[in-house]
């Protein structure tokens, strides 16, 4: 029992994987049949929340309370940029839109790292600014996506959606960057203790800046894909992904205090949030539940899984304090 507990503590990705499994079975029970279609559909639907959640994870992992609240506005901005530029050239539009996401991240990093404004406030404020760009520009920008790109993104390869394949590739690349490159090591070091990281010779400012840029690019990519899949860009397109993505990031084993991440856990976290949402939708329509129940259950579930997964980490932290004191 204690060994199992120890294992779960070391690999927090267990929680969202278990959660996904349970919800998958529950949906199967409601439908009367357990089919893999449920999973593939959920995987496709979770694309945008997942990309945002991975970006959030990278930013939060840089520690010191770093968080990116401007993600959904970056997503919207990049969606508009992509639909507009893809008119000229799909490749150019794709690349530039993702790069603009990176530039937004750079702006966040500049304000946070060099003007030393707390990350939460920085991204809150820059989010306003990015959104204003959307509001001003949207009247002059093109809304409909490039048909060729749409066909590419919404295609299915066997039962698997092209979106899922793209996201899986991004996940693998990100996992290599985070867990195998020197940068990944440095990011996790900076997240655990910035002072110690600086004294260990790590260029802390540069590492945090890169984290924000990666986060921005992932948000941008989410925007580009979302514009294609949803049939166009619109002003509030990011709104519904904010909560699931933040929830997925933390439920998936990202330490809110920084220094610990899990690409696998966060991916399953996003899948779990999507499955939960479709489970509640199904239940709602089958049993005619009052509309608020869905949100209520979602909130309660989110908080309780946090209590389970975060508490373990904290106990360990406290022990550290004791021993090193």
């Amino acid at each position: 029992m204690t060994r199992a507990w120890e294992f779960v503590r070391r690999y927090p990705a267990i929680w969202p994987i278990l959660g996904s499994l349970v919800l998958f079975l529950l949906i199967g029970m409601l439908n009367g049949s357990v089919g893999s279609t449920i999973l593939f559909t959920a995987a496709r639907l979770s694309t945008f929340a997942l990309l945002l959640a991975l970006g959030q994870m990278v930013v939060v992992t840089s520690g010191d309370g770093a968080i990116d609240l401007s993600q959904i506005y970056i997503l919207t901005l990049c969606a508009y940029v992509s639909t507009t530029l893809m008119d000229t050239s799909p490749v150019l539009g794709f690349v530039l839109a993702v790069l603009i996401g990176g530039v937004c991240g750079l702006v966040n990093a500049f304000v946070n790292v060099y003007l030393k404004v707390p990350a939460m406030v920085t991204t809150l404020a820059t989010g306003y600014i990015f959104f204003t760009l959307v509001l001003i520009g949207s009247s002059r920008m093109k809304v409909l996506p490039n048909a060729g790109f749409v066909a590419l993104v919404t295609r299915d390869v066997g039962p698997v959606s092209a979106q899922t394949i793209i996201v899986a590739l991004v996940g693998v690349v990100l996992a290599v960057v985070l867990y195998r490159t020197p940068y990944g090591k440095q990011l996790h070091a900076v997240g655990q203790n910035r002072t110690a990281a600086t004294l260990a010779g790590i260029p802390t400012g540069r590492v945090v800046t890169t984290a924000f840029v990666i986060g921005g690019m992932l948000s941008g990519l989410a925007g580009v894909l979302a514009a294609a899949v949803m049939g166009g860009a619109f002003q509030d397109m990011g709104l519904s992904y904010f909560l699931p993505s933040v929830a997925a990031a933390f439920v998936g084993g990202t330490a809110a205090s920084g220094g610990r991440s899990s690409v696998l856990g966060v991916s399953f976290g996003a899948l779990m949030m999507t499955l939960m949402s479709s489970f509640l939708n199904t239940a709602e329509s089958m049993y005619h539940l009052p509309s608020g129940i869905k949100q209520l259950v979602m909130g309660a579930f989110l908080v309780s899984i946090l209590i389970l997964s975060v508490a373990g980490v904290r106990t360990r932290r406290r022990q550290v304090g004791m021993v090193t004191a």
């Binding site: 968080i67 939460m120 909560l243 933040v246 929830a247 933390f250 809110a256 205090s257 009052p290 509309s291 608020g292 129940i293 869905k294 949100q295 209520l296 259950v297 979602m298 909130g299 309660a300 989110l302 908080v303 946090l306 209590i307 975060v310 508490a311 904290r314």
Partner: peptide, 21 residues
């Protein structure tokens, strides 16, 4: 010892749910 930012984010689902009920 939970991070307040996440708990309050989660709690807002609860507020919304109750309000919708």
């Amino acid at each position: 010892q939970l991070p307040a930012i996440v708990v309050t984010l989660g709690a807002q689902f609860v507020w919304l749910g109750v309000a919708l009920i």
